[in-house]
């Protein structure tokens, strides 16, 4: 009797979005307080989102739940990324005077980011003798996932692989960013934010808002949007380098 009640409870929970929404929220909150509590974790630049992602993957793997089932519920959180992207117009608007003042360097920076990213990824992937379709999947990985997937498709890559590479790049960028800033002695929030947005898209922008400043977040969002747009336009022209 008891087994069937638990069984039917499980059937209800796995069909309803409630469980994955709750787990996602708790994993993030838990990670947030854990990192706040232990200095060692924050010294490693570990972000609450990264820890939460690792925890959730572990839980899903242990319980044998598929990502598809988890996403049925978690899509409600995922959906808010849309309005959150639109929202980035507000901090950009707040800093419009600054952006107008450095229009030319910004445009140079955007072009530089697209070219440097393309040649670094294509060069390294070719060096490692990866097949051409994998090289193409690597090329757009520094931009926001939906743009990266579209570009990957149009230059002969595998969109699903690009999605994963783009997400991992975002996570890696949150670790390496602060190290690079320390190494180069970068202090300026505009440089930091722009770098984070250009190299690790949304993850970098979220990190800029959370652990640098609103100013850095605004420029990170700006870089993310502009580098994404420029990549969609420029990368198909660089396709000749992929073989």
């Amino acid at each position: 009797m008891k087994v069937t009640t638990i069984g039917s409870l499980w059937v209800y929970l796995s069909a309803s979005p409630l469980l994955s929404l709750f787990l996602t929220t708790v994993a993030y909150l838990g990670s947030y307080y854990l990192i706040k509590q232990f200095k060692l974790l924050s010294k490693l630049n570990l972000q609450p989102a990264v820890l939460a992602i690792a925890a959730l993957i572990t839980v899903l793997a242990l319980t044998g739940t598929s990502y598809h089932d988890y996403f049925e519920g978690a899509q409600f959180i995922h959906f808010l990324l849309g309005p959150a992207t639109v929202m980035l117009a507000v901090p950009i608007y707040d800093n419009l005077a600054r952006i107008r003042m450095m229009m030319a360097p910004m445009l140079l920076g955007i072009g530089g980011a697209v070219l440097a990213s393309a040649f670094l990824t294509i060069g390294l992937a070719t060096l490692f003798r990866l097949p051409a379709e994998m090289v193409a999947s690597f090329a757009p990985k520094s931009v926001t996932t939906p743009i990266a997937m579209g570009v990957s498709q149009s230059i002969g890559g595998i969109p699903a692989l690009t999605a994963a590479l783009s997400l991992i790049t975002g996570i890696i960028g949150c670790f390496t960013g602060p190290l690079v800033f320390k190494l180069t002695g970068a202090h300026d929030h505009i440089v930091k934010g722009f770098t984070m947005g250009a190299s690790s898209h949304g993850f970098g922008t979220a990190q800029s808002f959370a652990s640098i400043s609103v100013l850095a977040g605004a420029f990170s969002g700006l870089a993310m949007g502009c580098v994404g747009l420029a990549t969609a336009l420029i990368l198909p022209l660089l396709q000749v380098f992929i073989r």
């Binding site: 996602t24 992602i53 598809h68 959180i77 995922h78 699903a160 997400l167 959370a210 977040g217």
Partner: peptide
């Protein structure tokens, strides 16, 4: 409200790495 919790919104997408793990 949204800027403060921007990173939270990326969690479901990040877990998606596991869906493409076989390709990696």
């Amino acid at each position: 409200g949204l800027t403060k919790h921007l990173a939270f919104l990326f969690v479901p997408a990040g877990v998606g790495v596991m869906a493409n793990w076989s390709a990696i």
